[in-house]
């Protein structure tokens, strides 16, 4: 499902202009990363996509729905939002009930809910804990539970706000697998993250925000080669790019394969000399 952000601006009551005339199209099935320093406007803009915030100027369309014309509870069927802090949403007495909450709100049948809950818990390693209390989980597992509770809603658009925070390498591996399965399902994924390396690995397009504006919107290799823009946005590029720059490699890679190719090329060149 396509998402259209059309000249959106938003100013908080305390006068902070969090989003300023942002235009952005996210085609159906795309995986896009939103990066930028704290306060750059990423989360504020994301909250516009399911109507939690309404644009003061401009409009946001999700498919053919304008966020000004439907409540968030209706947008929940189209846009899933995994928030940063799991403790701000868990309320049920079991993991099963927690994950079933969203699909039940959307009016799915009992059989559909059962299938959705099992399918959401299993890939995150929570299948065996369905009857446990959410507050008995470790913080990283509570974060996984929040993701499962949104995955179960099977929304065409999914927003992940800082999904790698507090995750160990296994957690990140599970998250990667989930993102891979979402790619196969042609779901639109918006990844908001300070974890640039994870973002560079996972997305096919990167938008860099600063002071409520979009500084650059392009393929990851194009974005991460622009050190001037990243500096302006107060964002460090991926470690591989920084390493390649320090080694003065001819081409700036943004994944391991690219780095190896670039390194091999320069070694060949040096050997010939």
């Amino acid at each position: 499902m396509k998402v259209t952000v059309d000249g959106v601006s938003f100013v908080y009551p305390n006068g902070i202009r969090a989003v300023d005339r942002v235009r952005l199209d996210v085609p159906a099935g795309q995986r896009i990363g939103w990066i930028g320093a704290n306060g750059a406007g990423k989360s504020t803009l994301a909250r516009h996509l399911n109507g939690l915030l309404r644009p003061q100027h401009g409009r946001v369309l999700v498919g053919d729905w304008d966020t000004r014309e439907h409540p968030t509870s209706e947008f929940a069927a189209r846009v899933g939002y995994v928030f940063q802090n799991p403790d701000e949403q868990l309320f049920a007495r079991t993991l099963w009930e927690e994950v079933a909450f969203g699909p039940r709100n959307l009016g799915r049948s009992a059989a559909e809910v059962r299938i959705a809950v099992a399918a959401a818990l299993e890939p995150l390693g929570l299948g065996g804990l369905a009857t446990a209390h959410p507050y008995d989980l470790r913080p990283a597992q509570r974060r996984d539970l929040c993701l499962a509770s949104v995955l179960a809603m099977a929304t065409p658009v999914l927003i992940l706000d800082e999904p790698t925070t507090g995750q160990d390498s296994r957690g990140i591996q599970r998250l990667t697998q989930v993102l891979e399965s979402l790619r196969e399902l042609r779901r639109t994924v918006i990844l908001i993250s300070h974890d640039i390396d994870f973002c560079a690995d996972q997305v096919e397009r990167v938008v860099v925000f600063a002071a409520g504006h979009v500084l650059i919107d392009d393929r990851p290799d194009q974005v991460f080669s622009r050190s001037d823009v990243l500096e302006q946005a107060r964002v460090d590029g991926p470690q591989l790019v920084r390493l390649a720059r320090a080694l003065e490699l001819p081409a700036l890679p943004w994944d391991v394969e690219g780095f190896v190719d670039s390194w091999a090329a320069i070694r060949t060149l040096r050997t010939r000399r």
Partner: peptide
């Protein structure tokens, strides 16, 4: 502030608060 954040999270999962 926390109540607003929690309500946002529940509304995003389809809870009708209006």
């Amino acid at each position: 502030s926390r109540g607003e954040a929690i309500f946002d999270a529940q509304r995003a999962r389809g809870l009708k608060t209006e």
